[in-house]
């Protein structure tokens, strides 16, 4: 569990944040959240699909990073093994704690990125926020706004009945059979069966590129299989 604290100069005056080139916190995660705005770039390397949140049962869009739970085929100790970095992973250890009126920028103090020697400072000697921290704060706020757009996008898919559950069965040469269930993907048949009216309505919302990106990204499963074989 993350140990989240609102950022303050009194508590975090001398804290530094290490560079996170490897997206270290995703080491044992087989998926990463993605927002709808990054479906197109993310779809070049990962299957961009949907899962249900284990706490709420609501749909979330994700990039699939591994073929079994706790496996991330794109993690390596020296560098992230893909061109694209899912935006959500790059924000660590920052997150936004949203209250009714105000939102507080927080950090996960259990993160390995937090230290006192290396990286960017949060506050200067006078206890003022550094430009870097302001920049991070801005990114987190923008990302949260993108997650709202993503929720609307997913609702649009559900309202149009365009998502179907999918079980991924993969048999790699000389390896065990991989079965990942609980995945959901764009249903091509249902998409093609939409009435002209419904399809046009979708087009006008600007959702089509993301829908097709997700659909085509299913082929990226071979990318994962290739990485697995190379291990």
């Amino acid at each position: 569990m993350a140990n989240v604290q609102p950022i303050s100069s009194t508590q975090h005056g001398d804290v530094k944040i290490k560079d996170n080139a490897t997206l270290a916190q995703s080491k044992n995660r087989h998926f990463a959240p993605v927002v709808v705005q990054e479906f197109v770039p993310a779809s070049q390397e990962f299957p961009v699909i949907f899962i249900k949140d284990s706490e709420t049962g609501t749909f979330r869009s994700i990039a699939l990073l591994g073929l079994k739970p706790e496996e991330n085929l794109f993690y390596a100790d020296d560098a992230w093994q893909a061109t694209y970095k899912p935006e959500g992973l790059t924000l660590s250890p920052f997150l936004l704690n949203q209250g009714e009126d105000t939102s507080l920028l927080c950090i996960d103090v259990d993160s390995d990125l937090i230290n006192k020697e290396l990286g960017e400072r949060l506050f200067d000697e006078q206890g003022n926020q550094t430009e870097w921290l302001k920049d991070q704060g801005e990114k987190v706020v923008q990302y949260v706004e993108k997650t709202y757009a993503t929720q609307n996008f997913i609702k649009l898919l559900l309202d149009n009945d365009l998502i179907s559950s999918q079980t991924l069965n993969l048999k790699l040469e000389n390896q065990e059979q991989y079965t990942l269930s609980g995945l959901y993907s764009i249903d091509e048949k249902k998409l093609n069966a939409l009435s002209d009216e419904a399809f046009n309505a979708l087009r006008k919302t600007g959702a089509l590129p993301a829908i097709y990106a997700s659909l085509l990204s299913m082929q990226r499963i071979h990318n994962l299989a290739r990485r697995k074989m190379a291990q």
Binding site: K52, G57, T58, L158, I163, S164, S165
Partner: peptide
Amino acid sequence: NKVKQHGFQKI
């Protein structure tokens, strides 16, 4: 309680 808050998904 969760159902009241989030509902079940239809799929």
